[in-house]
């Protein structure tokens, strides 16, 4: 078992954002997380990545209790994430974003006697972007704030993948992206992720994407997991139809 969550609870005042959550994730699994707004998906993601501390419950990673780990410690053991609103270095160039991420991944954040933006580092960054089918020629000389939403999303996910995590949490990887681009982006991302043997947990509102790309689906409602099974089975459950995807 790679990741296990037991009896997880989190309240914000009187609102229960996580209510007795139990969850297991195996190696190389791709899990889609669905739920209406406010169902507790992002809170779940924030708790696993150490951004929020649970009121009670335990998180185990490869059998080790990581419940009290902070964001940096969680990252260092191999759990990375991307964000619903891309969290990138807006005023820096695309390549500089990648270079900084790579330097940190190589544990060089305290290095003093080398040029961070060396030719070699730029070349490595370009290679990496090409590997993820990022339109390097079009965007390499731009700052992140000049990028279209789709490219920003991909960059955010790429930043999360650098350092080869064992688990990656993608928070709405296709939100704000046109329908045509969604499939291409997901395909490219998951192809690259598979290459690195990374387990994926992705939050998504587009049911087509979830059905197409996930091996298992976890459905949230009011801070609880109401379904956890193969996509075809989850989408046929009455409570999922009623509270999340409609049609009942």
């Amino acid at each position: 078992m790679l990741l296990e969550v037991k009896n997880l609870n989190k309240k914000f005042g009187s609102v229960s954002a996580a209510n007795n959550i139990n969850f297991k994730m195996n190696e190389n699994e791709i899990i889609g997380v669905i739920g209406a707004n406010g169902a507790g998906k992002t809170t779940f993601c924030n708790i696993i990545t150490g951004y929020l501390k649970p009121d009670s419950g335990v998180i185990l990673y490869e059998g080790k209790n990581i419940t009290k780990f902070n964001v940096q410690e969680i990252k260092n053991i191999g759990i990375h994430r991307s964000f619903q609103i891309p969290q990138v270095f807006e005023n820096l160039g695309v390549l500089e974003n990648i270079i900084i991420t790579e330097l940190v991944a190589k544990n060089k954040q305290n290095a003093l006697f080398e040029d961070a933006y060396s030719k070699k580092n730029y070349q490595n960054a370009i290679k990496l972007l090409e590997k993820f089918s990022f339109d390097v020629d079009k965007f390499k000389d731009k700052t992140v704030k000049e990028l279209p939403q789709g490219a920003r999303k991909v960059l955010d996910i790429l930043i999360a993948i650098i350092g080869k995590p064992k688990v990656i949490l993608l928070d709405e990887p296709t939100s704000g992206i046109s329908t045509d681009e969604k499939n291409v982006i997901m395909k490219n991302i998951l192809r690259a992720i598979k290459e690195f043997n990374i387990s994926v947990l992705f939050i998504e509102h587009d049911m087509e994407i979830v059905e197409k790309f996930s091996e298992r689906v976890v459905a949230f409602y009011n801070g609880e997991i109401i379904a956890d099974d193969k996509p075809s089975k989850v989408f046929n459950q009455n409570n999922v139809k009623k509270f999340i995807i409609g049609g009942l």
Partner: peptide
């Protein structure tokens, strides 16, 4: 000058630009 060109110096720019992402990269 040497410091600002080094990875250590560039980390400062990352912190200025986005503290949340910097934390998630593992920067203390």
């Amino acid at each position: 000058m040497t410091f600002l060109k080094s990875p250590s110096g560039k980390i400062l720019e990352a912190i200025r630009e986005n503290e949340i992402r910097s934390s998630y990269l593992g920067i203390s």
